[in-house]
Design a protein around this nucleic acid. Structure first.
Lengths: 223, 223
DNA sequence: AATCTTATTATGTCTATACATAATATTGAA
DNA sequence: TTCAATATTATGTATAGACATAATAAGATT
């Protein structure tokens, strides 16, 4: 069926046969056709509606599956030495400005961390991290001097919802200083918020050196 | 089962009961448990291996589902007027430099387009686009003076594989000129390559004004 | 102790059948 | 002609049962 779509036998917008007929054509059960079509629909190649039937997607506005790896893995993948420094650690109660970014009520206890990730001793990523201690109380017991908050969270706390914002920016003075940026060098910023069953987990701002950082996503929709 | 994971009854790394037992616990058939677990595995919350069983994911290095909308939709969503200008159109045969980016053999016929997308008359996105005419021959018949190549391709040609690269950069002179950038303003660059059944379709470089462009991705892993 | 062969086990996939549900068509009444 | 009630249809989900497959565990052999 994928082949029929890619060679335009079934072109964009076309209505394709119903599951029962396809089961006949391919000599398998309707359940098998249903599973195959469900996977094609998840990949965004077709659109399905009850009674109306199944048609080849016209606007394939499908998303890209974006792998955001751990910094350590990212650095070691390019066979460089990973380094980590904790710059700051404090607990605080969220003010109104932070509440918006972390999506918590005012006066929620929050753990604030600043860290620098290094590749072969050179600054690579500056991390500003806030963790909601209502959702993740045991984070308060961790020093984060040996292990980065990203690695710790990934091992300890799953999430069910995430929001990412990517942007290019002129660096703040702090970013310029910590990342040792050349003049006029932009930063590539990733901001991430995660929730576990509707409860906010963490907000993080990750700043990278613009001239050298590239975020790559490779994405096979179908085997 | 999702609840058991989120409330840590089944914590990261834990082995969970097998499908048959779970079917008993939840009073449903194994096929139903299988489907539920398959969806949790797709969402990245659990890891499954034959014989070894199913365990809660330890490093939830799962990706983010990133919607990359059409420029027009993006602009109209913020209730601004969409504008489009074709700056250049030519057919050429790929040289060695282009071959690498488009993933085609040397001397493949290619359609090259430069366009500017405007929001309320202001420059918004500069598009440099190459289309493989071997894969998409009918693109040669389209003027692209009224409709942008992105919209046309999305309606006419599906894809099965995509590669995206995001980066922050200091603008080229051309970008500075076309996007009317303030001094020291970075650009947010999206590069995309797509394939249809292993045949290269297109390579595009989309440049945005750094100070105003933010790429947002919201992502509910599970209902 | 090391290696090869053979069970065993949990997931992966498929079948045939049944009923639920959403959306469209059709019918009937006002 | 308009609108509501009803029938139809394709997808959505569930079922019990069967066999395939990959990975481990156990046993036999060297």
């Amino acid at each position: 069926m994928l082949a029929r779509i890619t060679n335009r036998e079934w072109g964009p917008g076309d209505l394709i046969p119903n599951e029962e007929d396809l089961a006949g054509v391919y000599g398998c059960s309707r359940a098998t056709v249903n599973r195959a079509l469900r996977e094609l629909a998840e990949a965004g190649l077709i659109e399905r509606r009850r009674k109306a039937g199944t048609r080849v997607a016209r606007r394939s506005t499908r998303g890209a599956m974006l792998q955001i790896p751990l910094v350590r893995a990212e650095i070691e993948a390019s066979s460089r030495r990973y380094g980590y420094v904790l710059l700051h650690r404090s607990t605080l109660t969220s003010d109104s400005a932070l509440s918006g970014r972390l999506d918590v009520a005012k006066d929620t206890p929050v753990l604030f961390l600043r860290c620098l990730h290094l590749a072969d001793g050179e600054p690579y990523q500056l991390e500003n991290r806030w963790i909601n201690l209502d959702t993740v109380p045991n984070a308060a017991e961790v020093s984060f001097e040996e292990i980065g908050p990203n690695e710790w969270l990934v091992a300890e706390v799953p999430y069910t919802r995430a929001e990412h914002i990517f942007s290019a920016a002129t660096p703040t003075g702090d970013e310029r200083d910590r990342l040792r940026l050349r003049p006029d060098e932009p930063v590539f910023v990733i901001e991430r918020r995660t929730w576990l069953a509707e409860k906010p987990v963490t907000y993080v701002k990750l700043s990278h050196i613009g001239s050298s950082y590239r975020m790559v996503s490779r994405d096979d929709k179908i085997a």
